[in-house]
Structures are given as structure tokens and as C-alpha cells.
């Protein structure tokens, strides 16, 4: 009972408290509100710790039992240890070894990893973008107008292309995205209410 009841009750109290606070600008209400916001941040440090310990354990076990690819896990553990220790001991601002590792190891690799998608998007455009239906045709037409209209060569081809591109973005695209925004907004509100009233409990996990 306590295993589910306590978290559900806490969730309800916190949800109602923070929602009501919006309408009650009393000093006491503000005091509670500011503390809760601080506490949310402090708790998330431990959520990160759970992630670091969890991933560290997975790779440590792989090394210990010599599972396939265990040598790669040594690289992960070494990266974690070096970056983590240098960060904690040496600081994180510019000019520290931590900042150097971020700038010349982490950031280039992450950027490059993401830029691989440029190659995949060419392949996807070539293999996957088939005009099989009217909807696919509309999608393709809009994509082409934006792709051409947002680069300088579009204007070089014809002056009307960037104008058409701006119109597509500011009128029909805005209409569609506004519909989605309102839909997401209503969905977020209903999900929040479901969480507060304990209807949505997936965050509790399974027993």
C-alpha cells in the first residue's frame, strides 16, 4: 500500500500546490515555490548519479566477465573516469583540461556523429521519398519549395522561389504547426492532470 500510496499522495500534493501557487502570490506561497524549484534541481543530481552508476556497472561487468567487445568498455570507463575526475578536481571553466577535452574530443565527435545524418538524408531522399499518394506529393512540393527557397541559389533561379518559400513557412506551415501546438498543449494539460490525480502512473514502474 505504502509502496504506491505514498508516491501517489506526494505527487498529488506537489501538483496541486504548484498549480495553485500560480494564482496565489502570497509570500508564504512564494517561499514554498522557490524552495521546491531548488529541491527539484538538487534531486536531479542524484538522478544523474543513478545513470552514471548504472552505465558504469554495465561496462564494468562486461570487462570483468570478458563479454564480447569488453575492450571497448575499457575505453568507455576510461573516458568517464578521466573526464569526471578532471572536471571535479580541476574545474570546468575555460582553460581547464575538462574544457579542453570537451572542445577537442567530445564536441567534435558529437558534431561529426550528427553530421553523418547528412549522408543518410541523401540516401533517404533517394530511396525513401516516393510520390505514391496525393499527400506524399503535397509533402514533396512543400519540401522542395523550402529547400530551394531557403538557399541563395533559389533566388538565383527565380525571384519567386524565396517568396513562395516564406509564404509556405508563414501561412500553411504556421496553420498546421499551430494546430499541432494547440493539440500538444491540450494533451500536456490532460496528461498533467492525469498524473496529479494518479490516473497516469507509469512513472511508478512495475512491481
Amino acid at each position: 500500500m505504502a509502496k504506491r500510496g505514498v508516491p501517489l499522495a506526494l505527487c498529488f500534493v506537489m501538483g496541486v500546490l504548484m498549480a495553485v501557487q500560480f494564482f496565489v502570490p502570497h509570500p508564504l506561497s512564494r517561499y514554498v515555490y522557490e524552495n521546491v524549484l531548488d529541491w527539484m534541481q538538487i534531486v536531479s543530481v542524484f538522478a544523474l548519479a543513478v545513470g552514471v552508476i548504472g552505465l558504469g556497472r554495465i561496462h564494468w561487468r562486461r570487462v570483468v566477465v570478458r563479454r564480447a567487445g569488453w575492450r571497448y568498455s575499457i575505453a568507455t570507463l576510461a573516458g568517464l573516469a578521466v573526464m569526471g575526475i578532471l572536471g571535479v578536481v580541476g574545474g570546468i571553466e575555460q582553460g581547464t583540461p575538462y574544457a579542453w577535452l570537451f572542445r577537442y574530443v567530445q564536441a567534435p565527435m558529437q558534431s561529426t556523429m550528427m553530421s553523418l545524418l547528412a549522408f543518410f538524408v541523401v540516401s533517404a531522399a533517394y530511396r525513401g521519398f516516393r510520390v505514391r499518394t496525393r499527400e506524399a506529393g503535397i509533402l514533396l512540393a512543400a519540401a522542395m519549395v523550402v529547400m530551394l527557397g531557403r538557399v541563395p541559389i533559389g533566388e538565383a533561379i527565380h525571384r519567386a522561389i524565396p517568396i513562395a518559400s516564406n509564404w509556405v513557412l508563414n501561412v500553411p506551415n504556421t496553420a498546421a504547426m499551430r494546430g499541432i501546438t494547440i493539440g500538444i498543449g491540450l494533451g500536456a494539460i490532460s496528461t498533467s492532470l492525469r498524473i496529479i490525480f494518479g490516473v497516469e502512473r507509469s512513472y511508478l514502474g512495475v512491481e
Partner: peptide, 19 residues
């Protein structure tokens, strides 16, 4: 794999000093 480790280590240093 180096990237995974370093990225995680980045969080450790950052959370330590900023939070």
C-alpha cells in the same frame, strides 16, 4: 565508446560544480 564515457564524465564535472 570513448564518446559515451567522456560525455558521461562531462555530466559528472558539470553537475558537481554547478549544482
Amino acid at each position: 565508446h570513448i564518446l559515451v564515457g567522456v560525455s558521461l564524465g562531462y555530466f559528472v564535472g558539470l553537475y558537481w560544480h554547478t549544482t
